[in-house]
Amino acid sequence: MGRTMEWAAKANHMGGIPRKMVFTAVGAFAKAVATLINTTSVHNADTLLSLVRSRPPGIPLITVSNHMSTLDDPLMWGFKGFPSSDAKLGRWVLAAEDICFKNAVFSYFFRLGISSGFKQDFVSEIVNSAGKCIPITRGAGIYQEQMNEAIERLSDGAWLHTFPEGKVSQEDAPIRRLKWGTASLIVRAPATPIVLPIYHRGFEEVMPEKSFLGRRPPLPLWNKNIKIIVGEPLEFDLPKMMQMAILMSHDKSPPPLIGWPTISQHSLDEAAQRCLYTTISERIQTAMESLRSFGKSLLK
């Protein structure tokens, strides 16, 4: 599978003007919804702002969060003080190809502007766009061609946001088992990314799945309270974790092979990769769950 309209995602496409226009418009929309018609409070915002604006050269950032609504992105970047209209600082996001890239018009638009990847109607797709999208084919696995593009962006030291639970859930429930895509990006990136967990509540009230004739409302609701909890960066000693994964995989029965390539530079076969991705995902899940518990205490 080729890369869908990759040329439109390049920073120098038409001088960067279309991307700047999208970020300016959607950034203003995010600010209006998050700070004008609703109330948003952010715990530990300085950590996020510092990592977005200034990181060591060549070091990428991966932010991970729960997924409460189709408006999580871009609204979670609309809080006061965040540079939501800055196209250069803006994050890249993985988006579902079958939804955001249905035709040439949508493909071009979402290469410039991005939804969180789970929109199901035209209005939501247009309203939720916010720049720099990498299309992902759901069900095609973590080694699909499009994931290589995400690794290239990480190689550039970029910021990538993911929703590792894989789908929207508006229940007040523990963080679900994470998909392995985020863990695989952490391992395969040339420079180990900074990983920052985030938890949020309130977007499920701004855009509930079933409130308007059993569907999502046509526009965001107002007078809601949004709370965003930013955690501390997670550090991964990958060389040590890889060695442990190799040892652990040798002690287990080999899993059914599904054709994963060996990561030759690290001597990781499929069994070792499964162990490593599980370990990384569980650590991220634990961090996100801790933020969820902390957020519930703040709401009391």
Rank of each mutant, 00 (worst) to 15 (best):
N44Y: 13
P220V: 07
S155I: 05
P208K: 10
R283D: 12
P56S: 13
K179V: 03
L221R: 10
V42K: 15
K80P: 09
S184K: 04
E232K: 14
P57Y: 00
E125P: 00
Q120W: 11
L276C: 07
K179T: 03
M21S: 01
R274E: 10
P220F: 09
Q144H: 11
F101G: 01
F23Y: 05
Q144V: 05
T40V: 13
S41A: 14
E270G: 06
L247N: 11
P218D: 12
R292S: 15
T39H: 10
V168D: 04
V127Q: 01
I226Y: 09
V127H: 04
L221E: 13
H200G: 05
P18T: 15
L238V: 11
T279E: 04
M76R: 02
E204N: 12
V22C: 15
L234H: 04
E270D: 03
L219D: 05
L257K: 14
M1L: 07
F109P: 14
N38V: 08
I258N: 15
F118N: 01
Q144M: 12
V26A: 12
T182K: 01
C100F: 03
R19N: 09
P135C: 06
R91H: 02
N148C: 01
I280D: 08
G295D: 01
G139N: 04
P74F: 00
P197V: 06
S85A: 10
D72I: 01
T39R: 15
I194Y: 05
R216H: 11
E165T: 00
T4H: 02
K179W: 11
K132T: 07
H250R: 15
W260M: 12
W159Q: 00
G90Q: 07
E171M: 11
F122M: 06
F203E: 00
Q265C: 09
R292T: 02
G214K: 09
E165A: 08
V52D: 07
S211Y: 03
Q265N: 14
W159C: 09
E209W: 00
E289N: 03
M244I: 06
E165M: 02
K252I: 15
F82H: 05
F23I: 03
T162K: 00
S293E: 14
G131A: 05
E6Q: 09
R283E: 09
T70A: 01
R216W: 02
H43R: 13
A271I: 15
V64Q: 12
N66D: 02
R3K: 09
W159E: 10
P218C: 05
I228E: 00
E125L: 04
G58S: 03
L48N: 05
R216I: 00
M242A: 08
D172R: 05
P233V: 09
I280P: 03
S50A: 07
S267I: 14
F203Q: 01
T286S: 15
I226F: 05
A173C: 12
G131K: 01
V64D: 04
G113T: 02
D98N: 01
V123H: 00
R176M: 10
D172E: 15
T40H: 04
P261Y: 14
S290I: 15
P256S: 07
I175L: 13
K102M: 10
L196N: 02
S65D: 11
I59N: 04
W92D: 00
S281K: 06
C275E: 11
G214I: 01
T279H: 02
L48E: 11
I59E: 14
Q170I: 11
A140R: 00
F109I: 13
M288P: 08
G113L: 01
N223T: 04
G259W: 10
